[in-house]
Design a protein around this nucleic acid. Structure first.
Lengths: 363, 363
DNA sequence: CTGAAAGCGCTTACAG
DNA sequence: CTGAAAGCGCTTACAG
């Protein structure tokens, strides 16, 4: 196999149709020009020959010659089809697939890239296979700053799903406006009458965390209150609940969202009511359809729309005659605030120590 | 775009190192030969030059010169990433992805193919795009006999997930041995002491249905009993339950599996017990992790393994010097029998009319 | 042992 | 309006 697989080439088609190979190419992708330049007769003969031979363009050759392949690359740092049911990528990929189909593009997943330590490295040891695609959509919670700089250094269009920053220049991305969404959710809690609204979560430096923290601070400041930021890293639901109680909080926004159900469960287990005694909000809907059938207060991340928009951003870069401005390269989609049922007005009884009933000894 | 991107080429490296371009290529991928053939001095100079220029091989050129693309095509008749949660393809694709990664192959999904009536047509006018890959794995409940014949007619390696038959010749596939699995499940029910075991389901002519029906008949015959085959097409759980009762059945195998939970629910609603009054078995585990938390008697379809085996079958065709025999092209994987909790020995009270208590008037 | 050359299958200027 | 030719960046026979 390999060499001369018997696949028909433009030359084969040309021979059969009695035209030159270049003419076949022209008919296939000359567009308006091709239509004018080639006679209808020859055109028909070529089309017939294509049918007969089952000719399919070789994308490697197309690419090498400077053409487009109509293949959109998709790079994920973890398997696209995870074995466990928690499927982080799926909602984004629904949008990616739909938009690709709308543009008549196929989707190439770079599963073959050698992975190191269970994670794929995008570039690296020269075996980069990206180039066969017209461009690439990237997604994943993890990202390598070196990859980012490498990518920017090359002349290869790409688009991240999720905001990314790099010192090497403006990274093309479609993000979600977590900052505004967080502001609105915190404002909602203040509007319900809470005196203090806490921020409990992982205090990380990645973009999604930073955006939420900033949104929180802005809204607290705007409300003329003092921020209460609590580090929830590694805490169990019960421990997190204690922390909220210790700080006399009647309301808190939780990040990442996965911690929120555990806190709620711990609260219920202690005979507290949510939102009666404690209002909770998630800063973003969890990936899976909430298995706890609770309508969480918080906001919805427009994952499907982000996937579709990333493919569009990629294609705009391809089509644009001039490089896109930083402004055009970086897009944020709005999140939808979810009123939900886990936040409500504070009750009289819900004061500082309410979250920690006296019957329970300090841990 | 694309043209003269300023990326360093082997020619650039060669110039800098004072060797020929071919020598650069040799050093890069000549392996053992290259090591012997090129002097250590030149070798070092080339390596340095690669460092300096940041040279990375152009994959399109590599492929064009080399032949194989190491791209495995994947064709599904419906979206790969469905919007609703019932995800038929996912379990198969876990295996496909894992095997592709193991072989160092990327995965190309043909989303760009024009669809008609919501369903993708494999070939037809858009047949173009298949050839991009080295071969193609196909999956989907639906299949078009014309596509099958077309595919067999071309010199393009492929492999179906799920048994397929065509008058045009042996179709390469990796199926599951539904026949044997069905036999075993029916035998299990007989072994539990049931006098009669019914087959209730869609009586279709597609391969998965035919295999199960045949397995049922074989095991009934082997047990020296009479078959009771009931058409359950379009029935509600209650109606299906009536049908079983009318035929005096204490045990039945259900196909497709989706009907089984409805029958069980109807039985429970009428105060019957499963398996006390009625033993039920599914002929294949449902796609989704059973949302009804019941451990069904029946068998498990090795979906993941099927996906992986299909990719392997594809590559064996590519690698093999001679065409594979029909025997090698068509593979069946065994299913695992699940004892489950929905089948048990018949009770004395469980006789003909038990499934239909007298309190209920005929429908 | 080494370098020069052919060729992979395309696209797109470029001559007739 | 059309065809012949150059060239994309590689790999791998093939001559010296």
């Amino acid at each position: 196999m390999g060499r001369g697989t018997g696949r028909a080439t433009q030359a084969d088609v040309a021979r059969l149709a009695g035209v030159s190979q270049a003419t076949v190419s022209l008919i296939l992708n000359g567009g308006e020009t091709g239509r004018r330049r080639v006679g209808e007769q020859a055109r028909q003969r070529v089309l017939d020959a294509i049918q007969m031979t089952g000719y399919v363009a070789n994308p490697a050759a197309q690419r090498l010659a400077g053409g487009r392949t109509r293949i959109v690359g998709v790079f994920t740092y973890e398997p696209v089809f995870p074995r466990d049911s928690r499927d982080f990528y799926h909602p984004f990929l629904i949008g990616v697939e739909a938009q690709a189909e709308a543009l008549g593009c196929d989707l190439l997943f770079f599963t073959g890239t050698p992975s190191s330590q269970g994670r794929q490295r995008l570039l690296g040891d020269g075996s980069y296979r990206l180039g066969i695609a017209d461009g690439c959509v990237l997604l994943g919670r993890y990202d390598d700053k070196r990859d980012l700089a490498d990518l920017l250094g090359r002349d290869f269009p790409f688009a991240f799903i999720g905001r990314r920053e790099s010192a090497a220049g403006p990274v093309p991305y479609v993000g979600a406006d977590y900052l505004t969404a967080t502001r609105k959710v915190v404002e909602l809690l203040f509007a319900l009458g809470h005196e203090r609204v806490g921020f409990l979560g992982d205090l990380r430096r990645d973009e999604p965390s930073v955006d939420r923290a900033q949104g929180y601070h802005e809204s607290v400041r705007a409300a003329g209150r003092r921020p209460v930021v609590l580090d929830g890293t590694g805490l169990s639901g019960g421990e997190a609940l204690d922390l909220l109680g210790d700080n006399g909080l009647t309301a808190a926004v939780i990040w990442p969202s996965g911690l929120a159900p555990a806190i709620r469960a711990a609260a219920l287990a202690r005979g507290l009511s949510v939102p009666g005694d404690l209002s909770l909000a998630q800063l973003g809907d969890a990936e899976s359809e909430t298995p706890d059938d609770v309508e969480w207060t918080g906001f919805r991340i427009p994952r499907e729309e982000m996937g579709a928009a990333a493919v569009r951003l990629l294609y705009e870069q391809l089509v644009s005659a001039t490089p896109l401005t930083a402004d055009a390269l970086q897009r944020s989609l709005p999140c939808t605030v979810l009123t939900g049922t886990t936040a409500g007005p504070p009750t009289a009884s819900a004061s500082g120590s309410s979250a920690r009933p006296p019957s329970r000894s300090a841990g």
